[in-house]
């Protein structure tokens, strides 16, 4: 067992962990923050994306020991301080950017990381950025639209309804 410390959504955490504990398992099992999801075992689906020191990382493909000392952000920490949905979350709700909700935490975390680096991404930039986030429900249309809307772009011209 190794003792590690980190902040998770701004809160300081200190725990003993086994060497082979993945960051995703640590969040889900040890901290009981189950918003981070596991959808594959080959590091592709992106349901587990969290922020490590502000950067998008697949938490199922990083050992928690390597996050020792880091600042971790998860879906549970994204809402505004008053509990209301933040801009990205609200855009996903407004534009029906989710259906079953399973890939959604990873999508929101990826989208947030994208918008930090690229505040007004084009449709194509969003689609390329989401290469590592798989959604089976939405056909991506409303996810891309939500992210464009979250960035303040006019999405009213994007097809239908």
């Amino acid at each position: 067992m190794t003792t590690i410390s980190m902040t998770v959504n701004g809160k300081t955490i200190s725990e003993n962990v086994e060497g082979n504990t993945l960051l995703s398992s640590f969040l889900r099992e040890d901290l009981r923050m189950t918003g981070t999801h596991i959808g594959c075992d080959t590091s592709q689906c992106g349901a587990c994306v969290v922020h490590v020191n502000g950067e998008a990382v697949k938490s199922c493909t990083m050992f928690v020991i390597e996050a020792d000392g880091a600042e971790i952000g998860t879906i549970e920490g994204q809402a505004n301080n008053d509990g209301s949905l933040n801009v990205v979350q609200q855009a996903f709700q407004d534009h029906h950017g989710l259906q079953c909700g399973f890939c959604t935490p990873g999508m929101v975390m990826s989208a947030t990381a994208l918008l930090k680096d690229n505040p007004k991404p084009s449709e194509q930039e969003i689609r390329e950025y989401l290469e590592g986030n798989i959604c089976r429900c939405t056909g991506y249309h409303n996810i891309v639209k939500s992210i464009m809307a979250a960035s303040g772009q006019d999405v009213s011209k994007i097809a239908a309804e």
Binding site: G101, T104, V108
Partner: peptide, 11 residues
């Protein structure tokens, strides 16, 4: 959506 967007879904 609110619970799914805030990590509060219960799968």
């Amino acid at each position: 959506d609110v619970r799914f967007l805030t990590g509060k879904g219960q799968y």
